[in-house]
Design a protein around this nucleic acid. Structure first.
Length: 719
RNA sequence: GGGCGAUUAGCUCAGUUGGCUAGAGCGUCUGGUUUACACCCAGAAGGUCGCAGGUUCGAGCCCUGCAUCGCCCACCA
C-alpha cells in the first residue's frame, strides 16, 4: 500500500516559466539522454531526424522556431515510445546567402568584396559565422531542442568537405560531371552564375521593336544585343521564307554598315511569333546558344559581366545595356532600319532572386552535373515507395520537377564556400578534377594550371547532408541510423534541398536518405501576410518565448498547423496557450493538494472506471494521430480534454466526492485524479516539454511516476 | 502556357477514411469573490461551410462547372 505525500510548496504560487526553463534544459542536457547511446532501457528501433541546419548568418526567426518545435515534438514523442532517438543538429555556412548578408555589412562600412582578396573575405565571413553559430546554438536550446549536441556539425567542417570531394570525384569517374561552355544565368550585380532555381520570373511590359534586316523584318525587345547578329533564323516549314535556303548568304545593311548574314533554318523559329524571322544572340540567350550549337555558328560577347556594352557596340561601348537601348533604337530609326514598334509587349524576364536585377545570360565554362541518371533513380524511389511524402501533393510536385530537370551548374563565383577541387589551365582554359591537389600541368596543352577560383553551390554540399552527418561510409552512426526516419523542413526548399538530398543520397549510398518527408509551410503574421523587415511585422521567437513561455509558443505552432500549409503566427493564440500552461499547473495544485496522504486503490467505482476508459480511449486516438503525423489534432484534442473534461468536469465533480463521507468513493477518485494527471503530463510533454518536466520534477514519488525524467518516461501502452 | 492550394463564426484558422446537434484562439453579451486557477467559472449570441448542379440513406468532406485570392513551374526572339 502506497500513500501520497504532501503537496510541494512550489505549487502554491502561479507557474512562472522564466524561473524554470533554463534549469530544466540544463537538467536534460546533463542527463545525456539527448544522445541515443546513453538512453535508458532496451531500445531496438532507431528513430533519426537530421535537423535542417540553420544559416549561421543571423538570429533565428519564426520559421526556425517552427521547425524546432515540430522536430522536437517528433523526437520527444518517439523517445517516450521507447525508440533509440537521434536528432542531429547542424549549422549551415549557407554560401551565397551568407556572403550577401556580409556584403551588406561591408557596404555599411563603405567597403566592397571586389577590393578584397578571396582569402581575406573568407576569413572575415568565417569569423562572422562562428559568432552567429554559437548564438544560434543558445537559441536552439532555449526553444527546448532535444538534439544531440555531441554530434553537431558545421557545413564547412573537414569531414563535410572530404565527402563532398568524394562525391565530386565519383561523379567524374561515372561520367556525370563535365566542365563546358554553357549559357549560364549570370547576375551582373552579384558577379556569379546561378542554377535556374535561383531565378525569379517577372512579368513585364516592354516595347517590341521590328527592324529591317536585309530582306527580312526581325523583332526584338533587346536591340542592345543586336550589334553582331549575323544569322537570321526561320522555321524550315515557313512558306514565307521558302525562297531562302539554309546557309544562304544575304547582304544586310545593319547598325555598323553592310554585313553578310546567313539564313538558318531551325525548328526553334516560331512562325506564329512576330514575322517568323529572328536574329540570334547566342552569347546572351540560352535558346539562341542552343541554335548556334546545332549549326556550329560563331558566337560573340556583346555585354560584359557587369552589364556594360563591349567595344563591339561602337559608340555605345561602356554604356549599361538598358541605358543604351533607347539611343540605339533612335540611331537605327535615323538609319531607316526601324520598321515599327509595339509599345505594350508583355513577356517574362528572369531576375536574380536576391537583388531583383535582370539576369544576363553569359557563355561560361562551369562545372555541370548530368542530372538525368540521378533523377531517374529518385523517381523510381518515389514511385516505388522507398520514400513517401506526408503531404502527398508535394510528391507530385517533386516528380514533376524531376521529369524536366536540367543539368545542374554547381560552380559559383563567390569566395564563401567549399572550393572546387580542380585545376584550370591558364592557356587553354581546360579544367580537370584534382582532389589531392597534385596536378601542376595541363593535361591537354601542357600549360600552367591554377586552382579553380570557384566554390560549390551550397546546395551541392547540403544535398549530401544526411549521409555526411552520419559518417558515411564507415561511421557507426551510418550503420545504426541511416536511412533517417523523416525529413522535416520548409516546403519552399523542396527542390533546392529535399529532392537534391534524395538524388545525391541515392547516388552515393544506394539508399534513400529519409523514409518520409514532412513539409511545413511559411510562418506568416496574424493577418496571413509574409513577415519581412520592411513591413515591420517580423516576430522574434526568442522574445515571444521570453514573454509567454516557450511551451505556449510551441503549442501555438502546433495546433492548427496543417502539414504543408502556411501557418499564421498570432500573439493572441500564444496568449491562449499561456493560460493553458497555467491551467495545467493549477490542476496539479488541486490534484496534489487533494491527494496528499491518500491511499491508492485499483478497484475504482463504476463512474471512475468510466472516466478512466474514456481517457484511455482518447490516448489511443491521440497516439494514432501522432503516428499519422496529425500532430495538430493530437495537441488540440489533448488541450480540449485537459481543460474542458479533466478540469471543468471531472475536477468539479470531484469536489463533492472528496468532501463526502463515502471513503471508498473518495479513495477511488483520488487514485483516478493522480492517474489522469500523471499520464496527461506524459502525453503533453512532446508539445509542452518545459512545464510538464517542471511539474514532473516536483511531483512526489508515486505509483504513476515511473521515471526520474519525464523526457524518458514511457508512453507506449496506448495502442 | 501548364500545375497546385485556399474560399467554414466579427477576425485568424482547425475539421483524419462522408455520420456534425460544424469546433479552437481572440473578440462580443449576461451572470458569478463556488474546497486549484480572474492567466478563472457558468451561460448566451453569432455560420444557407464561395456559387450552381450531381452522387448518396446521409456531403463542410466525393464528382462536374463557375467565381475570387494566392503560390509554384515553364528557353521569356
Amino acid at each position: 500500500m502506497t500513500t501520497q505525500p504532501a503537496i510541494p510548496e512550489i505549487f502554491l504560487s502561479p507557474y512562472n516559466h522564466t524561473a524554470h526553463e533554463a534549469s530544466i534544459y540544463a537538467l536534460w542536457e546533463k542527463s545525456g539522454f539527448f544522445n541515443p547511446d546513453h538512453l535508458p532501457g532496451e531500445r531496438q528501433e532507431a528513430y533519426t531526424v537530421i535537423m535542417p541546419p540553420p544559416n549561421a548568418n543571423g538570429a533565428l526567426h519564426a520559421g526556425h522556431a517552427l521547425f524546432v518545435t515540430l522536430e522536437d515534438m517528433m523526437v520527444r514523442y518517439q523517445r517516450m515510445r521507447g525508440k533509440k532517438v537521434l536528432w542531429v543538429p547542424g549549422a549551415d555556412h549557407a554560401g551565397f546567402e551568407t556572403q550577401v548578408v556580409y556584403e551588406k555589412k561591408l557596404a555599411k562600412e563603405k567597403r566592397s568584396r571586389f577590393t578584397m582578396s578571396s582569402e581575406e573575405l573568407y576569413a572575415e565571413i568565417l569569423a562572422f559565422t562562428q559568432e552567429n553559430k554559437s548564438h544560434m546554438e543558445g537559441q536552439l536550446r532555449s526553444l527546448g531542442a532535444s538534439c544531440d549536441w555531441s554530434r553537431l556539425l558545421f557545413t564547412l567542417d573537414d569531414r563535410v568537405k572530404e565527402q563532398v570531394y568524394a562525391t565530386f570525384a565519383q561523379l567524374e569517374k561515372d561520367g556525370l560531371l563535365y566542365r563546358d561552355l554553357r549559357s549560364v544565368h549570370w547576375c551582373p550585380k552579384h558577379q556569379t552564375g546561378f542554377s535556374e532555381l535561383e531565378l525569379e520570373h517577372q512579368e513585364r511590359k516592354d516595347p517590341f521593336y521590328y527592324f529591317q534586316y536585309g530582306p527580312f523584318v526581325i523583332g526584338t525587345v533587346r536591340p542592345e544585343t543586336k550589334f553582331a547578329d549575323k544569322y537570321v533564323v526561320v522555321h524550315p516549314d515557313d512558306a514565307r521564307y521558302a525562297g531562302y535556303t539554309h546557309g544562304q548568304k544575304v547582304p544586310v545593311d545593319w547598325i555598323h554598315g553592310r554585313i553578310e548574314a546567313t539564313v538558318i533554318k531551325d525548328e526553334a523559329g516560331d512562325p506564329e511569333k512576330g514575322t517568323g524571322a529572328m536574329t540570334i544572340t547566342p552569347w546572351h540567350s540560352k535558346v539562341d546558344w542552343e541554335i548556334a550549337q546545332r549549326h556550329g555558328l560563331d558566337v560573340v560577347q556583346i555585354i560584359d559581366e557587369r552589364g556594360k556594352l563591349l567595344p563591339i557596340a561602337g559608340a555605345f561601348a561602356g554604356m549599361n545595356g538598358m541605358d543604351a537601348r533607347g539611343k540605339i533604337v533612335e540611331k537605327m530609326g535615323k538609319m531607316g532600319l526601324l520598321v515599327r514598334t509595339d509599345e505594350e509587349y508583355s513577356h517574362t524576364v528572369s531576375v536574380c532572386y536576391k537583388c531583383g536585377r535582370e539576369i544576363e545570360p553569359q557563355l561560361k565554362k562551369q562545372w555541370f552535373i548530368t542530372m538525368e541518371p540521378l533523377a531517374k533513380r529518385a523517381i523510381a524511389a518515389i514511385k516505388g515507395g522507398e520514400v513517401s511524402f506526408v503531404t502527398e501533393r508535394h510528391q507530385r510536385v517533386a516528380l514533376h520537377w524531376l521529369l524536366q530537370l536540367q543539368d545542374w551548374n554547381i560552380s559559383r563565383q563567390i569566395a564563401w564556400g567549399i572550393p572546387i577541387p580542380a585545376k584550370i589551365c591558364t592557356q587553354c582554359d581546360h579544367g580537370v578534377v584534382d582532389i589531392d591537389d597534385t596536378i601542376t600541368q595541363c593535361q591537354k596543352c601542357g600549360g600552367v594550371v591554377e586552382q579553380d577560383p570557384d566554390t560549390f553551390d551550397t546546395w551541392f554540399s547540403s544535398g549530401q547532408w544526411p549521409f555526411i552527418t552520419l559518417g558515411y561510409p564507415d561511421g557507426k552512426d551510418y550503420r545504426d541510423f541511416y536511412p533517417t526516419s523523416i525529413m522535416e523542413t520548409g516546403n519552399d526548399i523542396l527542390f533546392f534541398w529535399v529532392v537534391r538530398m534524395l538524388m545525391l543520397g541515392l547516388y552515393r549510398t544506394g539508399t534513400v536518405p529519409f523514409k518520409e518527408v514532412y513539409l511545413h509551410g511559411l510562418v506568416r503574421d496574424s493577418k496571413g501576410e509574409k513577415m519581412s523587415k520592411s513591413k515591420g511585422n517580423v516576430i522574434d521567437p526568442t522574445e515571444v518565448a521570453k514573454e509567454y513561455g516557450t511551451d505556449a509558443m510551441r503549442m501555438a505552432y502546433i495546433v492548427g498547423n496543417v502539414p504543408g500549409e502556411h501557418i499564421n503566427f498570432s500573439l493572441d493564440k500564444i496568449r491562449g496557450y499561456k493560460k493553458f500552461a497555467n491551467k495545467v499547473w493549477n490542476i496539479g495544485r488541486f490534484v496534489l493538494t487533494e491527494t496528499a496522504g491518500c491511499t491508492y486503490v485499483t478497484d475504482l467505482t463504476e463512474q471512475d472506471r468510466e472516466h478512466k476508459n474514456l481517457f484511455d480511449r482518447l490516448l489511443q486516438e491521440i497516439t494514432g494521430d501522432m503516428e499519422e503525423h496529425r500532430y495538430h489534432l493530437a495537441a488540440e484534442k489533448l488541450y480540449h480534454y485537459i481543460w474542458h473534461t479533466f478540469a471543468d468536469s471531472i475536477i468539479e465533480e470531484s469536489k463533492g466526492i472528496l468532501s463526502g463521507d463515502d471513503a471508498h468513493a473518495k479513495q477511488s477518485r483520488q487514485s483516478l485524479l493522480l492517474y489522469l494527471y500523471t499520464v496527461s503530463l506524459k502525453a503533453l510533454h512532446p508539445f509542452m516539454p518545459f512545464i510538464t518536466e517542471t511539474i514532473w520534477q516536483h511531483i512526489p514519488e508515486g505509483v504513476w511516476k515511473d521515471a526520474e525524467l519525464l523526457m524518458v518516461a514511457r508512453m507506449d501502452g496506448f495502442s
